[in-house]
Every structure is written in C-alpha cells, then in structure tokens.
Design a protein around this nucleic acid. Structure first.
Lengths: 188, 188
DNA sequence: TGTTTTGCCTAATACCTTTAGGTAGCCTAG
DNA sequence: CTAGGCTACCTAAAGGTATTAGGCAAAACA
C-alpha cells in the first residue's frame, strides 16, 4: 500500500487548485480524493469534512491575496498605491477564480478572527495614508475602495461585461481615476 | 391522494422564498419538496432538476429586481435617479438575500438571453440620460454604477461591514455623492 | 359518462458525506 | 536492527441528495 504522503496543507492546496480549475462550488471531498488518487475516507484524517475543507481553502486564498496586496503596496502611496492594490485584487481573481470565489465564503466568526480578517482591512487602510484621511472618513473610504474593487472584479468574473464593448481593460483605469478624484476630495 | 396543486411557477416561487430563508446555496430539490409537502420525485414534473430550478429562481429574482429598479426610476433623472436605483438594489438585497444571491448565478448564454439580461443594462443606462453620456463613456459609466452598487451590497450582505463603525447607512450616501460627482465630470 | 391528461406516487440507481474500525508503512528507542 | 507505536491509508456501512422509469387516481373535458 504505497502512501501518497499527504498532509493538511497539501490537501487544502490541492483543493484550492481544483477550485481554480472547476469552480469553488464544485470542490467536493470526493472529487478531491479522486484527484489525489486516494479513497474518500482517507481525506478525513487531514480535514474535518466538506465544510472544513471549504473554510480552509478560503483562509488560504485570503492569505495569498493579502500577500499579493501587501507586495503591491510596498513603497507606494496615493494613487500609485490605489492602482497597484486594485490591480493585485483583479489579477488574483483572474488568475485564480476558484480561490477568489472562496474568499467570498461567509466564514464563521472564529474562522474569520483566526487570521486574515483584519489583515485585509489594514491593507486597504494603508492605501489611504497618501490621502490624509482619518476617523470615520477613513472607514467610508475603505468601504468605497472595497466596493468598487470587489464589485468590478466580481462582475467581470461573472461575465457581465462579456457582450459589450469596449473591453473591461479600458473601463478599469477610468474607474480608478474617478476613485482617486473622489478620495482626494473626500474629507467630509 | 390529495393533490397539492403545484405548478412550475409555484414551485419556483417557493424555491425563491426558501432561498431567502436558508440561503441560495442551501436550496435543494429535497428541501423544497419537504417544504411543499410532496415527494422529491414529484417536483421533476415541474422543473427539470436541480440546475434548472436554480436557473429559474435566478430568472425570477432578476425579473423582480428589474421591476423594482424600473419603478424606482420612473419620473426621476440625474442624481435622483441614481440614488433611487441604487437604493432599490440595496433594499432588494436586504429584504431578499436568497433571491439576490440567485441573481449572481452564472447563467448559461441561452438563459441569460431569454429575458432579464438586457433589461438591467437598459435600466442602468436610463439613469445616465440625466448626465448626458453617450457611446463608450456610457458603457464605462454603466459598469461603474454596477460595480459600486453590487460591490457595496454584496459586501454588506456578507457581513464585511459588521464589525466597524459607523454603520453602512452612513457610508452609502457618501459613496453615492461621490459617484454622482464622478458621472457629472465623466466625459472623457 | 368515458376518455385523456397530468399531478403525485413508489421503486430503483447512482453519487457524495461521514463514521467506525482495520492494516501496514514509517519512525524511533532500546 | 528489531519492537513498539504512530499514522496514512484502507474497507465497510449508513444516510442524504439527484435523477429516471413506470404506475395510479384526481381533474379536465368531450
């Protein structure tokens, strides 16, 4: 009986890859076992079940996305930072649609607190340093950026922009220009 | 053997109600049959199966949402229209979270073409009449509005704004003010 | 009233999830 | 270098969901 040498991390990573290939919804313990060449029951040593598997994929994806955003932000400020941050999100979603979908999973409070929860908020907040926003204005601005970036990315991924011209690549910078203007005159 | 007197429409509507109560993901042929007091197999006379059921719920939700948006837009123009339109989306999502989630389902090209596909785009476009935008500018603007409204709504529904102050109701008008400004100086 | 339609049923098959309990590779201690 | 334990993987079994096939009786209609 040759061992496959699995571990929790390998299983979750394989699950994330599977999600990117067939969609997060389609990630199932059975499909993952098939892909890994083991029996279904074997995976239950590594993950707690279907729900746990999805949660762990979501946490992995959230972490990877935060890494990218963090890297994009390094050494930038103001509009530069905004464009790089938004681009990191969009690129991640296009390269890893399954992982991106996973980040939208509604996590249980404990799971959310367990790590990436605050990290994303902190990163978004970091963009705003160049705009001089504080207090409630800062919170509003964080929500604006999150809404625009997630909204656009999510609609693009869903194919909502597929059957109209010009291509979304043309719209994206226009929207970011607008958000930059908004942030510069945001203080309320 | 008393008949329940079901029909395609009743089944789909019950499915949409179920989605609002337990979440769109949890809508299953079995659960719906239980709720309707019939055997699972009986539903297969009314809908083509799990996939077809979800698609029909999505189309119903899309239609209801378009009705609301259309009503909100009637007799308004410019910022008034924008605020009413965005409010209709957000209110619909909060009153009918399951239906709103259903509208995010990736429809097959035929299903999308079958009706509500263009209706939403047309409605969003109608907002812009007050802003005097045409051609590519109009398309960009439609995408901006869609991104912001869907992004904010979706994050709010996912609970992303739950653990920070001020409440989202305070952020919403700020964002719409900003979008209004953006649209007024949009021509590019 | 007799016929057709059809709404709902039982039965059967197949797949996914999860738990219980067994077997054999691998690691480490003596 | 071998005896023990750990654990990665297995088989077996039970329960839920999806789907199809075929039957019966209530409803609709002539």
């Amino acid at each position: 009986m040759a061992r496959a040498g699995l571990s929790s991390e390998k299983v979750v990573r394989a699950g994330a890859d599977l999600a990117d290939e067939v969609g997060f919804e389609q990630v199932t313990v059975s499909a993952l076992a098939r892909r890994l060449g083991v029996r279904v029951a074997s995976l239950y040593s590594h993950v707690g079940g279907s729900e746990d598997l999805r949660t762990r994929i979501a946490l992995l994806a959230l972490d990877e996305l935060a890494d990218r955003a963090s890297e994009a932000l390094a050494g930038r400020a103001g509009k530069d930072a905004l464009v790089a941050f938004a681009g990191a999100y969009r690129d991640f979603a296009r390269e890893h649609p399954g992982r991106y979908a996973a980040t939208r999973l509604r996590l249980s409070p404990e799971a959310a607190a367990s790590g990436p929860g605050g990290r994303h908020a902190d990163l978004t907040r970091a963009i705003l340093r160049g705009y001089g926003l504080t207090g409630a204005d800062q919170t509003h601005a964080v929500r604006l950026i999150g809404s625009v970036v997630h909204g656009f990315t999510s609609l693009e991924l869903a194919g909502s922009f597929d059957h109209s011209n010009p291509p979304p690549d043309r719209t994206w910078p226009r929207i970011l220009d607008g958000v930059d203007d908004m942030l510069r005159s945001w203080a309320g």
